[in-house]
């Protein structure tokens, strides 16, 4: 019996040990080191200053300096606010586009549903940069779309506007890249709704609008929340889309972090920004989990 118990325990460690060790070493430990790095001084040539002093007069050890610096200049708070704004706008546009589509798929004959879902995922399979690049072509100054838009604006007496390298282009890119993340949880939720509920509402005299607003929408809220989290969180940390499609003013948290690590090489401040982003993400994930749990309880 003792022997058997031992074999089970050995097996358990043989199976869970390797992935556990790997992720401890290359995920948990790096994350902890980033936390510590955010409290350190920057090195003379980028990177981090040594933790223990060798030369007199050099700043070593731990400090709250980077955090003080973050709050001392309003520009950083402003970039965080702007990033939240872009994430919020992208989430809303994704929701407005994804909801009708998810509803249509959920109400389609069962045999067509898988194919319609596949059609949503398929573009997602192409490389992320290719999907962003496609919008460089469409929004480019010489493109048919750009010319048409500016022609239209001309009728209203508005001077031509460049579409590419603008906040508008950033929003389009964000929505395009993250749309499937909104459609799928919505569809998974809507598909489970019992059609009898809508029939009952109709029998009780509810019109189409009320049937949607009073029955379908409240029941779909868990799907809305998980879709919103799946769009909001990656958009919040995105640097490549503003980098490629945005103008000079379109700097989000991700661009700021990238710049601290690869540009100015102020790693402690880059780590501080990353910690701030992590806290924001954890708070958002926590809030989403809390709201959807409440929804279930009702």
């Amino acid at each position: 019996m003792i022997n058997l118990l031992n074999t089970t325990r050995v097996t358990k460690w043989l199976v869970s040990g390797p992935p556990f060790l790997y992720l401890t070493l290359f995920f948990l430990l790096p994350s902890l080191i980033m936390v510590v790095a955010s409290f350190r001084y920057p090195g003379d040539y980028g990177g981090l200053a040594p933790l223990f002093g060798v030369e007199p007069g050099k700043e070593t050890g731990l400090t709250l300096e980077t955090y003080r610096f973050f709050f001392s200049d309003f520009i950083y708070t402003q970039i965080f606010i702007k990033s939240f704004g872009v994430a919020m706008a992208s989430t809303l546009v994704c929701l407005l586009m994804a909801y009708p589509l998810a509803l249509l798929i959920a109400h389609s004959p069962r045999k067509h549903r898988d194919f319609m879902v596949l059609l949503v995922i398929l573009p997602f399979a192409s490389n992320f940069l290719i999907r962003v690049y496609a919008w460089m072509i469409i929004l480019g100054p010489q493109s048919a779309f750009s010319l048409a838009v500016n022609h239209l604006l001309g009728w209203f007496g508005i001077a031509p506007v460049p579409l590419l390298f603008s906040s508008f282009a950033v929003l389009v890119g964000m929505v395009y890249v993250h749309l499937p993340f909104m459609v799928l949880p919505l569809y998974t939720n809507l598909e489970k709704h019992d059609p009898v509920l809508l029939d009952a509402a109709q029998d009780l005299g509810a019109n189409a609008w009320n049937r949607f607003w009073k029955v379908t929408w409240p029941l779909s809220l868990p799907g809305v929340y998980s879709g919103a989290a799946l769009v909001f969180i990656p958009v919040l940390g995105m640097f490549a889309i503003p980098d490629i499609l945005g103008g000079t003013g379109d700097i989000l948290i991700g661009n700021l972090i990238k710049d601290q690590f690869l540009g100015t090489r102020d790693w402690p401040f880059g780590s501080t920004l990353s910690i701030m982003l992590t806290i924001a993400v954890l708070l958002l994930a926590g809030i989403t989990a809390m709201i959807s749990r409440q929804g279930v309880r009702q």
Binding site: G237, K258, S271, V281
Partner: peptide
Amino acid sequence: VAMPEILLGVSLLLF
């Protein structure tokens, strides 16, 4: 998998 990719990127760079 769930956190913004940039966070894993920079923490590994640091490490």
